[in-house]
Amino acid sequence: MPYKKAGKEFKIVDATLILMMVAPLLVAILCKVLFIPQSEGIEITGAHVYFTLNMPVSTLPISESQVNSAAVLISIFFLCLFITHGIRAKVYTKRAVIAEWAVEKVEGLVNENMGTYFAGFAPFIGAILLLSAFSSLISLVGLFAPTSDLNVVAGWAILVFMLITYYKLKCGPWYYVKGFMEPIPLMLPMNILGEVATPVSMTLRHYGNILSGTVISVLLAAALQAASNAIFGNLPGILQNFPLFRIGIPAVLSIYFDLFSGCLQAFIFAMLTMLYVSTAFPMEEYMKRKQIKEKAN
């Protein structure tokens, strides 16, 4: 394929997109640096609240998780724009290959796990993967990961639950209710509990994994500090307080707790979404009814 040198305008647009991609994160970091006081000692709390809005039903605290999710959202928006900027059939670019690879991977995943009927779910699964992964990975730049806030993940899980219910209702409300009485009507309370447990378990799994990573990181940092103090405490001068063990070791653990766990939980959340939605849809029954309806017409 012909390789065309990028024009000046193209480069300017590219630079703007990259800038816009990074800017929200910089703003979030700035907010954190400016408004949040440095913590001292071991402190495990939820997100810091910048300010609180008075809303009906309950107040809305604009916390770190809100700001950071918005930052992630805007970043992903510009990432999408950047990666698809100037891709054309005849021009071969690295980003086009990456974008194509990602899209094809997600579509393959959806087709494999949900079947071709749910092919339209690919962008949704892609959105879940991106949002979840980036929300967790934002902790790499020192920001509060929105996924370690229960409410953020709960919102996604409720959306997934709505989709599950929507597909279960596709064969009519009676079929949906009947589904709870299987295999015997006695199982009704258990089935209802199981139904409600789905979003709850999805939420808690994701949120708990990310939060536990953060908690372990904090505990470990404190423990390593204590170990340094215990061993080098008798040295004179500034060496006494030098946290030698805090160099390097937390970085290695961060690979697991921030990088790996974040990506893994995003993948698990997407996987569970696909499985729950596809199994919720009674495909055979739906097709049978559709055929009967077509015959009646």
Partner: peptide, 9 residues
């Protein structure tokens, strides 16, 4: 917050 996150997705 749940609603905002819901809308975000």
């Amino acid at each position: 917050q749940i609603l905002i996150s819901f809308c975000n997705l």
